[in-house]
């Protein structure tokens, strides 16, 4: 009799403990859930607040279009870095995107069994290699290649460091992310799509080009945009390989700079010249805003494609 009594009271206090844990944990989880929002808000607020000094001093338009970057004499022209960033992004994506999509097609549609397993694990490995190692190998291999062979071959002059060198390395760095996302989208497609297209006598390639690439289009499109964001914000590889020159590059074989390398190269001096700090933080904010705009634009385009290319 006594034991049942104890059991029951023990049971109800245990239930109380469990419910208390449930309540406390849900507070924590709600907090953790909104941490992403809070973090993003805090980052934006901090960067905006710190950018105010430079924006109130110089007009945004003036800074974007001036090619003179010389903080010591209060000249803050972003144009060379903007041009460099566009150069690197366009070149790397132009080389990397077709490469990645073709490789994804190989893995999803051609490779079978063991080969497929091996190739896709290699892609995973490639994705995990730190970019600083790509930079180092770039210095050892790509810099002499561009300086001694590629540039002379097209009749240009290059010291090896420069926009082309960065683009070649970034084109490789960016492929694994695009490949694995594209492979995922292709493999998610039902076999009926393949059967339907092959069943009316299309070749495998016609099926891939007309049917599969469209049906997987929204996913592949996101993959490309993700790659774009990576190249756009890449810091370490450009900083190691672009050659750091604060003038507008005349050819892709020239040295140059990108928005992130501007930050890396000049952040050391910021303590002495206050406006530089604000200018560089503005650059950081710009990176964030552009990535944000692209994410948002991607969402809209993706939605359109999903309707247009539904299956």
């Amino acid at each position: 009799m006594g034991t049942t009594e104890t059991n029951r009271s023990d049971g109800s206090s245990r239930l109380d403990r469990r419910l208390l844990l449930e309540r406390l944990s849900s507070y924590w989880l709600v907090g953790a859930g909104f941490f992403a929002v809070a973090l993003f808000g805090l980052i934006v607020l901090t960067l905006v607040q710190q950018s105010i000094p430079i924006v109130s001093e110089y007009s945004l338009f003036q800074m974007m279009t001036s090619s003179n970057w010389d903080p010591a004499s209060d000249e803050f022209g972003f144009l060379p870095a903007i041009v460099g960033t566009i150069y690197v992004t366009v070149l790397s994506m132009a080389m990397g995107t077709p490469l990645a999509i073709l490789a994804a097609i190989y893995i999803a549609e051609y490779a079978e069994g063991r080969t497929k397993l091996i190739v896709s694990s290699f892609i995973d490995v490639l994705a995990a290699i730190p970019s600083v190692i790509f930079g180092l190998v770039g210095l050892i291999v790509v810099v002499p290649f561009v300086g001694d062979y590629l540039a002379p071959a097209v009749g240009a002059h290059s010291i090896g460091l420069g926009i082309v060198t960065v683009s070649l390395v970034m084109a490789i760095i960016v492929t694994p992310f695009m490949i694995s996302l594209s492979v995922e989208s292709l493999e998610a497609l039902p076999d009926e799509l393949r059967e339907s297209s092959l069943g009316v006598g299309a070749t495998k390639w016609e099926t891939i080009r007309t049917v599969l690439l469209r049906a997987a289009g929204p996913g592949i499109f996101s993959a490309i945009l993700l790659g774009f964001g990576r190249v756009f914000g890449a810091t370490i590889v450009p900083a190691m390989l672009i050659g750091g020159q604060t003038a507008i590059p005349e050819s892709p074989f020239d040295a140059g700079e990108t928005l992130p390398t501007l930050i890396v190269n000049d952040f050391g001096e910021l303590m002495s010249i206050p406006l530089t700090q604000s200018a560089l933080i503005l650059v950081g904010l710009t990176l964030l805003v552009v990535v944000w705009i692209f994410n948002f634009g991607a969402m809209l385009v993706r939605r359109r494609l999903q309707r247009r290319w539904q299956y």
Binding site: S196, L198, G201, A202, A215, Y311
Partner: peptide
């Protein structure tokens, strides 16, 4: 092979519209 599959057409079990 595609020519053979043109001559012998196939309609799958699941109704499948191509993304067109």
């Amino acid at each position: 092979l595609p020519e053979i599959r043109r001559r012998v057409g196939y309609v799958p079990q699941t109704p499948t519209a191509l993304p067109l």
